[in-house]
């Protein structure tokens, strides 16, 4: 039963990873940018909600509602000021520029908030630790369940948006072939701006739930980036529901690893990631594109 409980906790943890990875996946899928500042941006969102909750004494959920428009605006500005300029300058430049952005963000947060760890757990009361007992050995935590439900709702909402709305169709068309998208009248700059804004809204959710479920500090971003990256690679790059599958696989592996040994949490997660890459390699995917499951785009 302990193992079943660990798997259940892993699935719920996977919801958090899916939420974290969703924005990274969207940005990569649409713009082909691996945003190395993704984890740091999640921590920025965590600090913003923490400030609203502790300085203005609002509920973290109200704080989240206030922070989301700021994150959307930040995403749009980042697209116009950083990503757009770096996209045209070669494949390495977006990596370098987002890496630089991560360094600037991490150190700015350190300068502003110091090295102390913070958390929103004290601001959400019982929700931080309450759980429902399914049996004497299986528990469902309220916060992990809420996180999972919000992640599924976020992915589902995004999925429906992409499927049913004119802007969603434009995003899908641009994702597939930006050159042709321009030729049918789509302003791809606008689509990229929207994708970056939506990506950072997802980051806002992830940062808030990170702050509610754990302690964070200015340098917590890179670890979050790795988890998000592993989740999207396991699930298939650029696939939203694949992100949920990837997150769940990662979460379950980490929890099973932790059951074996306390150090096994991280090791098992990375091992699962490498095992998936190895499986793809031996299944015939020798190139980086097939290893990471990156969809092809037609040549311009």
């Amino acid at each position: 039963m302990i193992w079943v409980n660990q798997i259940l906790q892993g699935v719920l943890l996977g919801g958090y990873y899916a939420m974290l990875a969703c924005g990274l996946s969207l940005m990569f899928g649409v713009m082909r940018i691996i945003n190395l500042a993704h984890g740091s941006l999640a921590v920025v969102a965590a600090y913003l909600v923490w400030v609203v909750a502790n300085r203005l004494h609002f509920s973290p959920f109200l704080g989240l509602a206030l922070v989301l428009p700021c994150m959307a605006l930040a995403g749009w500005l980042l697209q116009r000021l950083v990503f757009e300029r770096s996209l045209g300058a070669g494949e390495l430049v977006p990596l370098l520029s987002t890496f630089g952005l991560a360094v600037v963000l991490d150190n700015s947060m350190f300068q502003t908030f110091g090295a102390d760890s913070r958390s929103l757990a004290p601001n959400i009361g019982d929700l931080a630790w309450n759980s429902w007992g399914v049996t004497s050995q299986i528990y469902v935590g309220q916060l992990p369940l809420l996180t999972f439900v919000v992640a599924v709702a976020l992915l589902g909402g995004l999925h429906l948006f992409l499927l049913r709305t004119p802007m969603g169709r434009s995003v899908r068309a641009t994702t597939e072939d930006p050159d042709t998208a321009e030729l049918v009248g789509i302003d791809t700059r606008k689509v990229y701006g929207f994708a970056a804004a939506a990506s950072l809204v997802a980051v806002g959710f992830a940062g808030t739930f990170l702050a509610m479920r754990a302690a964070f500090d200015p340098y917590a971003g890179p670890a979050q980036l790795i988890f998000a990256f592993e989740a999207i690679v396991i699930g298939g790059t650029g696939s939203l529901w694949g992100t949920l599958v990837g997150g769940v696989v990662l979460g379950v592996a980490q929890n099973l690893g932790a059951q074996v040994s306390p150090q096994g949490f991280l090791v098992a997660g990375h091992a699962a990631f490498l095992a998936v890459l190895a499986l793809r390699f031996f299944a015939g995917g020798r190139g980086l594109r097939s290893l990471l499951r990156i969809p092809r785009r037609p040549a311009a």
Binding site: P166, R169, D177, D179, T180, V184
Partner: peptide
């Protein structure tokens, strides 16, 4: 250069 992931209707609507 159709958008192969979009249906014919979606290709027209987009």
């Amino acid at each position: 250069r159709l958008f192969t992931g979009l249906t014919v209707r979606e290709n027209l609507l987009v």
